[in-house]
């Protein structure tokens, strides 16, 4: 008699999880990233390869490529952004609903890369805030997958509730060179 029960049989524990709102929201967001391929140049081909059968981006829960910004929450800027294209990239970014993230795929999108010329924007971070930069010209599909996993880790640690109450910090673009 008076045996202490150590088994798991509490009804309360079975149906309630005590956690932080941030953790839940981030968990949901992290595993349902819908990327929008902003395919501009060569990197877009590697982006397609990442979606193809060999690399298969869907293993990480991010395969729902949406071509409409209104349905997507992660913009993958794949390719050289020229000044003529920059305003378009910004407009498309603004059409995405909050919260939203940006991955700069490849050297051109990150920093202008090998195109140091009159027509090329020296890094897409001058028009949109970038969360993850991927190096390479073009990056291998594995590098893109790695970047997406990094993005998931970043989403996991965000202050989502605080950001819900305040304005989402979307204006973190780099202004050192253009102000």
């Amino acid at each position: 008699m008076n045996k202490q029960t150590v088994a798991y049989d509490s009804k309360v524990e079975g149906e309630v999880i005590v956690t932080r709102a941030d953790a839940v929201i981030n968990w949901i967001r992290k595993n349902s990233v819908w990327p929008m391929p902003m395919g501009l140049a060569c990197c877009a081909i590697e982006l397609m390869a990442a979606g193809g059968s060999r690399f298969d981006i869907s293993r990480f829960g991010m395969e729902v490529m949406r071509f409409s910004p209104r349905q997507a929450d992660c913009m993958i800027v794949a390719g050289t952004v020229t000044y003529k294209m920059a305003e378009v990239v910004r407009r498309i970014y603004e059409q995405m609903g909050d919260p939203k993230w940006v991955v700069a795929m490849g050297a051109c999108a990150s920093s202008g890369g090998m195109y140091r010329s009159y027509a090329t924007l020296q890094g897409v971070d001058r028009v949109v805030p970038v969360d993850v930069y991927v190096s390479g010209c073009p990056p291998r599909p594995e590098a893109l997958l790695d970047a997406m996993i990094k993005l998931q880790e970043k989403i996991k640690d965000e202050n989502s509730v605080k950001n819900l109450l305040t304005k989402h910090p979307i204006n973190k673009i780099r202004k050192d060179a253009v102000s």
């Binding site: 390719g79 020229t82 003529k84 195109y115 010329s117 027509a119 090329t120």
Partner: peptide
């Protein structure tokens, strides 16, 4: 022209 990167000038 949205991908004009200035190859000839380079």
């Amino acid at each position: 022209g949205y991908l004009h990167r200035g190859d000839e000038k380079i």
